[in-house]
Computed example of a mutant assay.
Amino acid sequence: MKVAQLGSGTPEIAVVAGVHGDEPCGVRAVERLLDERPTVERPVKLVVVNEKALERQVRFVDEDLNRAFPGNPDAQTHEGQLAHQLVEELEGCLTFSMHSTQSHAEPFAIVNGVSETAQTIIPQLPVAAMVETSDFAEGRLFTEVRTLEVECGLQGSETAAQNADRLTRAFLTAVGALPGDTMHRDLPVYRLTDVIRKDDADTYEVFVDNFTEVTPGDPFAAADGKKQVAKESFYPVLMSSNGYRDVFGYAAEKLEVLTTPTAAD
């Protein structure tokens, strides 16, 4: 785990990259900050986490780090020990954690509860939506540390790396670490309601777009040509044919749209 800092003093803000070794976009954003060393108005901790997995260009070495929290110093897995170390390193910090996905090109945020912090900061980021994990947060970083998580774009793409840089700088501006202003956006909010599982098969297909409503009777995915049909309406999130080993993604409900305050407000 690589830990660095911008500014002097004890950081209350952290930027985390490389939780998964096959998602290098956030690492590039952190490296650019370290190269440029911008003057900050609040100290910022920068962490590149799973260096061993990054070197091997694999998602994890022994287990998914973002399902291993709180971890244990005596864990039998690399990620189990790393999770414990990261929680200690991030104590007292509001953390911005960057990921990428095989399912959706446009950035979106993932939170463990629509908190006041999330409602204040995330509409200032260049994201298309905010997703609340509901009952599907077990083992993730934000169960132990105050964390705003973002999916920066398609895994391994140059666009995801560029998005990670923009998102990081917008976050640091929103929390007062970098000078400047941010742009507030109207932001739809979704809550995960179910896992969409897939049978063991040789080929998988997805027929729907993430964050676009699926209505009853619509076919939304198939395994070896056998279609799955919606029994009730839902919004797909993180849906892809091969992003996960045993699930297509998640079903969600749309909660609200956070609107931009007017000047009169």
Rank of each mutant, 00 (worst) to 15 (best):
E63L: 12
K198V: 14
A29L: 10
T168G: 13
F211S: 02
L54R: 01
E151D: 07
E23Q: 03
L178S: 09
F142M: 11
E36Q: 14
A177V: 11
V58R: 04
D62V: 01
Y244C: 00
A252P: 02
P188A: 15
D200R: 05
H20D: 03
L86I: 13
V127P: 03
L258K: 14
D64W: 14
R32A: 06
D224C: 13
E138F: 12
I122S: 00
A129E: 07
T159K: 14
Y190T: 10
E151C: 12
K227Q: 14
V19E: 01
V237Q: 03
F211C: 08
V58F: 00
E55D: 04
I110V: 07
V175Y: 04
P123C: 02
Q228H: 15
K231R: 14
Q228L: 15
E232G: 08
V150H: 10
L125K: 10
H104P: 02
F96E: 04
P11H: 09
I196S: 11
E116Q: 05
M98S: 09
A118N: 03
P188E: 13
Q85D: 15
Y204T: 15
V27M: 12
Q81F: 03
D62F: 01
N66K: 13
I13H: 00
S233R: 10
A263Y: 15
A137H: 10
V15R: 02
V87A: 15
N163C: 08
H104D: 14
A174V: 05
T101A: 06
T215R: 03
R191W: 10
D246C: 04
A105Q: 13
E55P: 04
D200L: 10
T133H: 03
F171N: 08
E51M: 06
E31H: 07
A174I: 12
A177D: 05
L65T: 01
A68H: 07
V127S: 11
P188Y: 15
T182C: 13
E55I: 02
R67T: 02
A137S: 05
F108D: 08
D165F: 01
I110K: 06
P24A: 02
S115T: 00
T147N: 03
V44K: 06
L94I: 11
N66R: 15
A164S: 13
I121D: 04
R146V: 09
A128H: 09
V48C: 09
V27Y: 11
D22E: 00
